[in-house]
Write a protein that binds this DNA or RNA. Structure first.
Lengths: 216, 216
DNA sequence: ACAGTACCGGAAGCCGACTTCCGTTTGTCA
DNA sequence: TGACAAACGGAAGTCGGCTTCCGGTACTGT
């Protein structure tokens, strides 16, 4: 699994590689399509979201198809690859986080905004394996949904910058550290810790005064 | 994935289930065996340790056999299942941690001992995927190597207890939280953060004075 | 030196995912 | 309404791992 687990196999066929996610994919979605097709797409996404929350990237395509009351063939008509489908779901996760980050950016008290951001995410992670897996995968550079991740990182970067200018976050913390921390928080919550305490500890670590001199 | 990517498949055959790890396994190891067999076992373990550090639980049996210059058949003669082999390796990881925890227990300054323990592990995690995966898997209760994990947890529990009595660790932290934190630290380091800073943040989170009142 | 047996190697088997294929169904447009 | 293409369903294909099998090899004790 490591992690857990994640098992999106690298596409064995050359076929999938020929489609950029978010290009042709959306093009197909937009273009004139039959009513039943559109309906099925909705059903699939709805079912996939639930399953993703429950099982994370370990969801199985057949499981999703079953929940959506649709054949696997139909599933693959709409999403040529598991990776494409997961990317769609991960994008939803990210856009949620992004809008939270934006409300944080609109808040005057930077530190309170950060606290709020972290608590909100931690709370959701407690019941959403998909969100946790998304944060974990976000650390691997160059993933498929790198675009969305970078949009989030952009927000977090300015948030971090302000907080450091403000003195409310340790000066030596980098954006990479923040990313890693979110990833760590996911894992810790997945590991069964109490999300509230874990979030508060993470915040304390960020907030802390100048780092204590390192022990040998 | 999550995790990352642990892929020890549940044994499909009834065969593996009939052998308790650490019982029959060791018995076979002890019992009179041919010299070449013993030599091969050592080669396998040596190769597996290196591969495990490099790849974590994602190592493949064939890879290990190749590195040990041994056929897969031989590998399976010594370890009837991938799970058995990984358990052996994880046990090594745990016993290292346990002895570190014991030196920590022997130290007068509890907080300094904890710092040292965390830094040491973090440093090793930075280059040892096997250690990271071991900590991640340790959270899943009831794993195969639960015995060793519990021996470690026992040490950590008394360490935590003393530190809380001492006032150097937040009162509301539980052993489960500590476990989750180690798991989170693994993930964060795997996610590419700087181990030194991450460890210091984690310690700050533990050390912190009474928890800040939770934000909504 | 020899028999007997433990052990070795790696090709083949198996299994659980993902993905493809194609006959059938259904919506759409004239 | 009829023809046509788009979409459906799910059985079958594929692939990458773990695991087994069995003919050959080489220790070990006599």
């Amino acid at each position: 699994m490591a992690t857990a687990s994640a098992n999106i196999a690298p596409p064995p066929t050359p076929r999938a590689a020929s489609q950029r996610i978010g290009e042709l994919d959306h093009a197909v979605a937009e273009r004139h399509q039959r009513a039943d097709a559109r309906r099925n797409r909705e059903k699939i996404i709805a079912a996939a979201e639930i399953a993703f929350r429950e099982l994370g990237t370990a969801v199985q395509m057949e499981d999703i198809a079953r929940r959506a009351k649709v054949g696997v063939g139909t599933l693959y008509r709409h999403f040529p690859t598991k990776e494409h489908l997961v990317a769609e779901l991960a994008t939803h996760c990210f856009s949620g986080c992004i809008s939270e980050a934006e409300t944080a950016l609109a808040t005057v008290d930077v530190w309170a905004a950060i606290e709020c951001f972290v608590y909100r995410n931690a709370e959701q992670m407690a019941t959403d394996a998909g969100l946790r897996d998304t944060f974990m995968a976000a650390c691997q550079s160059g993933g498929i949904w790198a675009g969305e991740r970078d949009r989030l990182n952009q927000r977090l970067a300015t948030l971090l910058e302000r907080a450091q200018a403000n003195g409310s976050v340790r000066q030596d913390v980098t954006l990479g550290d923040v990313q890693a921390l979110m990833c760590g928080l996911s894992a810790a919550i997945a590991g069964g810790g109490d999300w509230r305490r874990l979030a508060s500890m993470m915040l304390a670590g960020l907030h802390a005064p100048p780092p204590t001199p390192a022990a040998p």
